[in-house]
Amino acid sequence: MTDVAVIGAGIAGLVCAQQLTQAGYSVRIVEKSRGLGGRVATRRLYGTCADHGACYLKPKGELFGRLLELLHQRHVLEVWTDTVYDFKSGSGLTIANTSPPTPRYVAPGGMSAIAKFLAQDLEILLNQRVIAITPTPENSWRLTLESSNEELTATSVVVAIPAPQALMLLEPLGETLLGTAFLNNLRSVEFYPCLSVMAGYPSTSQPLPHWKALNFVDDADLAWIGLDSSKRPSPEQPVFVVQSSAAFAQRHDQTQDLHPVGQYIVQRASEWLLPWLDTPEWIQVHRWRYAFPSRSLQEACLPANSSLPLICCGDWCGGNLVEGAMLSGLAAAEEINNYLRHLPLPKESFLNFLS
């Protein structure tokens, strides 16, 4: 029995769990993947790594800016660049319109290092998918786990995963238990998909570009490209990450073999930018079905209308990507605390362990 079960070890879930743990609650996180961070993700491959989710972080909002500064002081984050370029087919490269220049922070050890840092001292079950949530006669929630046939019992639940996945998990509980408005709000959230292509090149390739990050403004297939290896202290080879447009990812939603799709994406990038991008040494493709919220909720979190506390949170509450996920996790912790013991919960307490 635990006070709070958090489903999902992305930024929202980790921040919520850290806040509640420091207040004195017992908290367990259940994560279906083998790693932490959700879309703040890093792939280890071919002796290197590549950030195939969030590419960098910008200071946006006072609290999020403080978090980035603290992570910078602890050498989890470093400034990567303050210049991002736009590419248009008719006019070529121009500096993206940001005034004043804004630093982009990255983790030299991979962006998932942010999640690992936020996860300090938390109890986390990895590789465990929650397949059912049911109320118990003892006024608690029972979570059934897929791989181990085990169950976890908690006084309250925080569901910190994309809304469509939360809906699949919670819809069987029905409107009588959770409330019609709650389920309708979950149903209203929509996401853009994305395909993320990681490509490595021989160290003897042509000279590297002067840009580190570039937006494709008007391309039907491509959205972004970054020289990912420039984030690393001593890269052994050039590594690029190319992200597809949402429309392109939607067209390939049911494509099983994504390798040819990835080859096509780097070929398109080579046509616009660098001819040698068409001949990678290796390539991997990751499908993000829930990459960016296209229709968010305005609320910072979504409480169910149930007698037992159950809260949904994530970057789809309020938007603003990683910053929104952090603020949503804080809001969910506050809601849970209001249901439970009303312990002192300073808004910035989850940052204290960083200092």
Rank of each mutant, 00 (worst) to 15 (best):
I7K: 09
G8M: 03
G8I: 05
I11W: 02
A12K: 11
A12D: 11
A12W: 09
C16F: 07
T21M: 10
V30E: 08
V30A: 10
L36D: 05
T48P: 08
D51Q: 05
H52A: 06
E62Y: 13
E62L: 15
E62I: 14
L63Q: 15
L67T: 03
H72E: 05
R74S: 02
H75R: 06
L77G: 01
L77D: 01
D86E: 14
F87H: 11
G90D: 07
N97R: 15
F117S: 04
L118S: 09
E123V: 14
T134I: 10
N139A: 15
R142Y: 04
L143Y: 12
E150V: 09
E150C: 12
L152V: 15
V159I: 09
A160M: 03
A160T: 07
P162T: 05
A163G: 06
A163P: 09
P164M: 06
P164Y: 07
A166C: 11
A166V: 09
L167F: 15
P172G: 13
L177F: 15
L177K: 12
F182R: 04
L186V: 06
V189L: 10
E190N: 13
F191G: 06
Y192Q: 14
A199K: 03
G200K: 04
Y201Q: 00
P207D: 07
L208G: 09
K212N: 10
K212H: 11
A220Y: 08
D221T: 06
D221C: 05
S229K: 08
K231Y: 01
R232G: 01
E236C: 04
P238E: 01
F240C: 01
V242P: 02
V242C: 05
Q243A: 02
A246D: 03
F248P: 02
F248Q: 01
R251H: 14
R251I: 04
D253N: 07
Q256F: 12
G262N: 00
Y264L: 12
V266K: 03
V266S: 03
L274M: 14
W276E: 13
L277T: 01
E281G: 00
I283F: 03
Q284D: 12
H286T: 11
A291D: 05
A291S: 12
L297Q: 04
N305I: 06
N305G: 06
S306L: 10
C317I: 02
L321Y: 12
V322L: 01
A331C: 10
E334V: 04
E334I: 03
R341W: 12
L351G: 01
